[in-house]
Design a protein around this nucleic acid. Sequence first.
DNA 1: TAGTAATAAAGATATGGACAAATAATTTAA
DNA 2: TTAAATTATTTGTCCATATCTTTATTACTA
Lengths: 246, 246
Amino acid sequence: MQNGEPRYRRIQRDLEDRLSRGVYLVGSLLPTEADLGLEFKASRFTIREALRKLTELGYVSRTQGRGTEVVSSDPRRSYVQSIQTLEELFQVALETWFVVHDTKRVVLDAELAKSVGGKTGEKWFCITGVRWTEPGGRSIAMIESYIPSRFEDQIDKLEQHTGAFFNFLEKYCGEPIEQVVQEIRSLAMPLRISRQLGLRPDALALQLLRRYVTKDGVIIASFNWHPADQFVYKMKIDSNNSVKEN
Amino acid sequence: MQNGEPRYRRIQRDLEDRLSRGVYLVGSLLPTEADLGLEFKASRFTIREALRKLTELGYVSRTQGRGTEVVSSDPRRSYVQSIQTLEELFQVALETWFVVHDTKRVVLDAELAKSVGGKTGEKWFCITGVRWTEPGGRSIAMIESYIPSRFEDQIDKLEQHTGAFFNFLEKYCGEPIEQVVQEIRSLAMPLRISRQLGLRPDALALQLLRRYVTKDGVIIASFNWHPADQFVYKMKIDSNNSVKEN
DNA sequence: TAGTAATAAAGATATGGACAAATAATTTAA
DNA sequence: TTAAATTATTTGTCCATATCTTTATTACTA
C-alpha cells in the first residue's frame, strides 16, 4: 500500500501471470489460501481478495471444501467469465432471444454432416438469424442452426418469430419443453454455431442450454460455449425453488 | 450462520428491500458502514460483504471518502448496471458494433423533425441496422438512425460495413473523430433510437457515446440510455493515460 | 464388497482492530 | 473574496483469529 498498489492486486497479477504462463494448468487446483498466504507472506484475507478478483475475472472457480480450480488461463477470450452460478446460467438461457433472418432446406454434404452430427445426404433445415441474451446481454451471434428436417413443419413457424427460444419450442413443438430438449440433446448437437458473422474469430457465442427433469427432480443442464468444452451440471430444486448444484 | 443463510446475505436482502421500497432514494447516500454496523449489530466486515453484493448487482456505487450512493432501485431493469467506471463506459463505446440493414433518404415530417431535432421538410438520411456491444455485450437494438443529408455521401459507404462505429466515422468522414462527434453533438441528437424491434418495451438500448477533447485535455463524454436520462461526464486524462472523473 | 460414519481439509463467514487514501467540509492565509 | 491548507469523514486495505459448512478421504461396519 506504500507505493499505491494494493498488496492483493500485486498477488492477483502474480497469479494471473502464472496462469497465463501455464504454471497452474486448467483443471488443476490452486494452492490453498493458507499455502498462498505463506508463500506471499500475506494474511489469508489478502489472499482471498486476490482470489476473489480472479474469480470475478473468470480465471478460477472456488468450491467450499474442495479448493480453487483453474477454469481458464485467459478469460478475456471466454464469453462465460461472468457466469458463476447456475442461477446465472439459467438466467442467461431464459433470456435468450432469437430473431430469424432466413430459413431454408439443405442437404448435408460430408463436411456439414460431420459438423452437425448427421449423415451425408440427409435433409436438414437451416435457420439463419441473430441470437442474443438480454437484459444482461452477454452474447450475440449471427448464427446458422441446423435441425433435422422432421422438425421442419414446426420450425417453419419460427420465421419472423421474435421471442424466447424456449418459449418457441414449447409453443410450436407441442411437447413439454423438457422432452423436446432431451430429444434434441440425443441428436448430438443438432444446433451448432457453424458460422459467425460480424464477430471476431475468437468471439464464440453461447450454445443452447439443454435441460431436462428426471423422476427424482434432478435437472441436468448441458452448456456449451465451445465444441471442445462441454459442461454438464446436475442439480436439484428444493421446495424453496432454490437450486443446488451437484 | 446457524440457519444456513449467512448474515451478510440477510442484511443484503434487507437493504435491497429498502431500496426497492424507496427508503433510500436514487442519488442519495446510504448510511455509512459504521452506522449500518450499529443498526444491524454486525461487524464492518459483514456490512461490507452485503454492500459488496449490492455493488455487484448494480444497486449502489461506492466511493472512497465519499460514501455509498444509490444508483438504481431495480438494477434488473437497467442496462447500465455493470457500468460503474468511465473506463468501462469507454470500453462499451469502443466495442460498439454496427451492422447496416438498410439505408434510405427521408423527408422529415413534423413528428420526425421533432424527434430528431431537425426541421419539417428537411432531407435527412435514415440508417436501419443492428447495434450491439461485445464481447461484454450489454446491449443490442434494432435501430433507425437519422442523420442530416449533408453526411449522406460519407454515410452511403457505411452500407454493409461492419465494424466499430467510431472507426467508421474516423475512416469515412475524413475528419478527426472529436470534431465530427462534436459537430454531430451540436445537432441535438441526430442519432436517436426512434424504434426498437424485438425488444421488450423496457429494454431501452444504449445510445451513442459522444466525446470530444478540448484544448486543455478535458474530455467530455455524453452518454444516454434513455432520452429522459442524459448523463454528461467530464474527465481528464493524465500522462499515465488514466482517467479521472470530474 | 458396498454402504455408512467419522475425520480431515478447504473455503465461507464473522469479529475486532488498525492504518491508508480519497473526499468533503472547514479553517486559514493571501 | 479567493485560494490554499487543514481537518473530519468515509471507504479501502490489511492483519490475526475463530467458527461454520461443504467436500473429500479414510476407517469402519454389515
